[in-house]
Every structure is written in structure tokens, then in C-alpha cells.
Computed example of a mutant assay.
Amino acid sequence: MSQLSAYQSGLKEHNLAYELLKRKLRTSIVRQIIKILRPKDLRYIYYSIHKERPISGVIPSVEAIAQTRESFLYMALFASIYRSASRVDIKTNMDINAIVFAWDYFCNMFPGHIRERRPYGRIRPANFDEAWVITHAMKAGSADLQYCSGCRRNYFIIYCTNYPPICQICAMKNGGVRKGRPN
């Protein structure tokens, strides 16, 4: 029985690794989650799926993702989908299945927007790495999803950034605050 459960556990981890790599999550992030596969194995799986090498370099920070006020709207939408899909408290844990669901749902809402390579558009997260970074920032407390009593919608805030923690929808309706400064 224990051999069967160990086999099932390993199979679940392999399946999860496949699902994450299929969405082009960086192998360095997948390695933090999947302990049974070596980095070399993860790179091989990534190459087998996409016929290209995994993306290397520094993982983006949540502060670097938001480039325009409009990008906050899409980030709030993604974060709202994630929060609704999650079965755990997103401020203390990450729900990997909810991240995958939220990303797939977000991509279905905006078909053709995904741009894995720069230059990214205004629709953010632009790739699964950015979606992962947003959810991780919410867990770490460097970003949050708030409710606006004015327009009755969720808005996304990032602490320690040039953007003031205000509702982006209300700011854009009232003549806008762009790049964190009044017009």
C-alpha cells in the first residue's frame, strides 16, 4: 500500500510539473514546487513540450509588471479570478490549482494577448510567470486586492511602488492618474 501511495504521489508531482511547464512557468520556479525532478529533467521536459529552451534570467517582480494604470485593471481581474477559485487563504498560502485555473480562464477572456517575449502589451499578466509573481506577491503581502466602495469593484494595489493605492477604475473615470502622478 505504501508503494502504491508513493507511486501515486510521484505521478501527481510529474503531472503537476507537466501542467506548469506546459504554461511556460520558469523551471527555477517549478523546481521550488517539484522536489522529485532534477533541474536537468525539468529543462528536458520544457524543451520536449515547446521545442525551445526554457526562459532564463531574473524572475520579474510585481513592481515591474505594472507599467501603466490600465495594466492594474487586468491584474485586478486576474487576482479576482484567482481569489474566487482558491480553496485556501491566499494571504497565507498559494493554491497552485487555482493559479492554473485563473490563468487559463484569463487567457480565454483575452485570446491572443499572450506575449511571452518583450515588448509586453498593457494586458498583464502577459505570461504565466507574471501570473505566478502576482499570486506570490499577494501571499507575501507586497500586493493586495481591495474593494472600492465608489465603483463597487476590486482593485489591485502594490505596496512600495510609485502608484498610489487607489481604485484605478475611479482614477481613470475622474480624468486619470497616470504613472502614479496626477495629470
Score class of each variant (00 low, 15 high):
C107G: 01
V177G: 11
R178Q: 08
Y120G: 02
R83I: 10
K35H: 07
D144R: 01
Q168R: 00
P182G: 06
H14L: 15
M1I: 10
H136S: 12
I33Y: 00
V30T: 06
N174H: 08
K91P: 00
I90G: 00
A102V: 03
M138T: 02
I90V: 14
G150A: 09
R23L: 07
D104I: 07
K40N: 04
N97M: 13
Q8F: 13
V177C: 07
I158L: 14
A66K: 01
V177T: 15
H50P: 14
G121Q: 06
L77H: 10
G57Q: 06
M172L: 14
G175S: 13
S48M: 14
N93C: 05
T27K: 02
D89E: 13
I157C: 08
F78A: 03
W132H: 03
P111F: 08
P119F: 15
N15S: 08
P182C: 15
L37A: 06
L16P: 03
Q146I: 14
R87F: 00
I123E: 04
P54L: 08
E13H: 01
H50C: 07
R124D: 07
D95M: 05
R115D: 06
G10E: 09
W132V: 01
I34R: 02
E19D: 12
C148D: 04
D95V: 01
L20T: 09
H136Y: 10
S86K: 01
I65L: 10
P125K: 04
Y155Q: 04
H14K: 11
Y46Q: 15
E70V: 05
D144W: 07
Y82L: 06
S80G: 08
A126K: 00
M172T: 11
V62Y: 02
T92S: 15
D41E: 09
N154R: 05
W103N: 12
V177P: 00
G141T: 05
D129I: 14
S142M: 07
L16H: 03
G141H: 02
A79K: 02
G112Y: 11
A85S: 07
W132E: 03
S142A: 09
Y46T: 08
N174A: 14
A17Q: 13
S56P: 00
C167V: 03
I55H: 03
F72M: 13
S142T: 12
Q32Y: 01
I49A: 12
V30G: 02
S84N: 10
G121A: 11
F78P: 00
Y18W: 05
K91D: 04
S84L: 11
P165S: 13
Y47Q: 09
I157W: 04
C148R: 15
I33K: 05
K12H: 12
A6N: 09
F78R: 04
Y147P: 00
I36M: 10
Y105M: 12
Y163M: 09
Y155L: 08
Q3V: 06
V88M: 14
